[in-house]
Simulated assay, not measured.
Amino acid sequence: MSEPDTPPLAIRPARPADDAALGELDRATWSTLHAVLPRPMPPYEPFFNDAHRPDSYLVAEGGGGEGVRRIAGYIRLVPPTPLACNQHVRQIQGLAVADWARGQGAGRALLRAAGDEARRQGAARITLRVLGHNTSARRLYESEGYVVEGVLPGEFFLAGRYVDDVLMGRSLTR
């Protein structure tokens, strides 16, 4: 939990001005525990681009001391495909929490906010993919009602070993 004098986390939509801070957070939290793309190297691309727009992200802000708020994490929520027959589903395609904000509920708050936003957009289901060896993330998702709906065994080769791709989801109508 957060310290008594630390303001609670606030969730808000991302803004274009968050680009640099989100890029830094993304690079700082990169790990083969959750990333299948290679580690980003300079020169760094902008965080936002045509395929990754600010309106697809929610941001958690937390206390940075002396009343300063800073980005504690983000979650990306998008339709999984452009197909009309799939528009009742939203997919989480990225979740990161700054090291300093871990244990303060930022990941859980972002997951819940993503569910609320998906409902607001008219979605009936929400899905995600998580690497099989990321047990802490899987426990968090399960505690929020996500269930394993499929496993692609050995789908990725990361850090010298094969890793499962676990498909999880939950209903937003129950």
Rank of each mutant, 00 (worst) to 15 (best):
E66Q: 14
P16E: 00
S171K: 06
G64S: 08
G132Q: 00
A60R: 07
S171N: 01
P79V: 11
D18W: 08
V163A: 05
L9Q: 06
L83D: 09
E66H: 14
S171T: 11
L111M: 10
A21K: 02
I92W: 05
L152P: 12
R125M: 10
L77S: 01
E149L: 10
H88W: 02
R70T: 14
G122Y: 10
L95K: 03
G105I: 06
L110S: 02
A113D: 06
G67V: 13
L158D: 07
P153M: 02
A10H: 14
G64N: 08
R108G: 05
I92M: 05
S143R: 03
L131G: 06
R112F: 04
Y162W: 13
L25I: 03
G107M: 03
E149V: 11
H88D: 03
E3A: 15
Q91F: 07
A114F: 09
P38Y: 05
V130G: 00
D19L: 03
P4G: 12
Y141W: 08
A28G: 00
L152E: 15
H52S: 08
D165Y: 09
P8L: 11
L77H: 02
P42I: 10
S136K: 12
D99T: 11
I11T: 08
R120V: 03
T32Y: 12
S2C: 10
T127Q: 10
A60I: 08
C85N: 13
F47E: 01
R125L: 13
P16L: 00
F156W: 10
R129Y: 13
E155S: 12
D18Y: 07
Y146V: 03
L111E: 06
Y141R: 05
R129E: 15
R161N: 14
T32C: 13
Q91A: 11
A72H: 04
M1D: 12
V89Q: 03
L77D: 00
L83P: 04
L58W: 15
P54Y: 04
N134Y: 04
G145V: 02
A113C: 05
V148H: 02
L110V: 01
N86R: 11
P16F: 04
M41I: 14
L158S: 07
G67Y: 15
I11L: 06
G65S: 05
A137K: 05
A124T: 12
W30V: 05
Y162S: 10
S143V: 02
P82C: 04
H88V: 05
R108F: 03
T32V: 13
G160H: 05
G23K: 05
A51L: 09
R76F: 11
A113S: 09
R12Q: 07
Y57F: 15
N134F: 01
W30R: 04
H133P: 15
Y74Q: 06
R102S: 07
